[in-house]
């Protein structure tokens, strides 16, 4: 079920977790402490609680160093929180699993596999028969716009193409939640825009739950149902904002839409305020 953004005229408001029925991911008072080399503890995440509803596109937005990627890794099961717990569908997350599919900024493709081999990897691991996995994978490769590149190696592809492969590879094993860790952060502006558009098109077909980490305000607003604003040192949630913009979203329409512009201006203003408040005097 998709979360319907609140229709109230008040565009911002902290989200309470009364919609527990459709919650797919629950993060409960999670803190993460890293030991730095100087044996000093660094509090990367402080007491984070967040509920993500099934089918929602949620962005985690914040400056670098605010622990937003760490939060995503905790949900992925790649990192264990120092305290607190994360749950998926009521089950405590103890490690990675095929119900949560990551897409990383670094692509992390298997360089010794072709595009097709990369996309087929997950389904084959899950025991899908070769012929069936190949048919599904070819369809996915076409969906992400790489038809004709099935037999290419990652090394032969541009960054944008690699990220398309990575997305197809993750979608191939049908995770219930997509965990996207600044997926377009390493791409040039033009490629980035194209991939944002394509991601929205793909997402709007089946509306999987997406947790999307980014430091770009307009990317977060453009894509999301909900934006979780984080601030740093220690990393904590500053504000959760529902993005009440109609879907399907078209970039050229949104850029002219005063509501879209207002979201961006307001979010940027909040970040500026927190920067000033946090600046050393």
């Amino acid at each position: 079920m998709k979360v319907v953004p609140s229709r109230s005229s008040e565009w911002v408001g902290p989200v309470t977790s009364q919609k527990r029925a459709s919650a797919i991911i629950e993060i409960d008072r999670v803190s993460q402490v890293f030991q730095t080399s100087a044996r000093k503890d660094h509090l990367a995440l402080s007491n984070i609680s967040l509920t993500i509803e099934e089918g929602a596109f949620v962005s985690i937005l914040g400056p670098s160093g605010c622990g937003k990627s760490t939060l995503l890794y905790i949900v992925g099961g790649f990192v264990s929180p120092t305290s607190g717990a994360a749950k998926i569908k009521g089950q405590a997350i103890t490690g990675p699993g095929p119900d949560r599919g990551p897409v990383f900024q670094e692509f992390a493709l298997f360089p010794w596999k072709t595009v097709l081999g990369n996309v087929m990897y997950g389904p084959r691991q899950q025991g899908v028969r070769a012929a069936e996995a190949e048919a599904q994978s070819r369809a996915l490769i076409e969906m992400v716009g790489l038809k004709g590149y099935e037999s290419f190696y990652p090394k032969e592809l541009s960054g944008g193409m690699k990220q398309r492969v990575a997305l197809a590879r993750t979608l191939a094993y049908h995770p219930e939640v997509l965990l996207m860790d600044e997926p377009f952060g390493a791409l040039d502006a033009h490629t980035r825009t194209r991939l944002q558009n394509d991601l929205l098109n793909i997402w709007e077909r089946d509306r999987k739950t997406v947790l999307f980490v980014t430091h770009s305000v307009d990317e977060a607003v453009f894509l999301s149902d909900k934006v979780v604003m984080m601030s740093k040192s220690p990393g904590c949630i500053r504000e959760v904002i529902d993005i009440d913009l109609p879907r399907p979203r078209r970039r050229n329409e949104l850029l002219l839409d005063p509501r879209y512009q207002k979201y961006i201006v307001n979010i940027e203003r909040m970040f500026d305020e927190s920067d000033e408040a946090g600046a050393p005097s």
Binding site: F78, G95, P96, F104, A108, Y121, Q126, R169
Partner: peptide, 8 residues
């Protein structure tokens, strides 16, 4: 991590 998520 990608492999772990696939169940390896």
């Amino acid at each position: 991590w990608s492999g772990a998520a696939m169940g390896l």
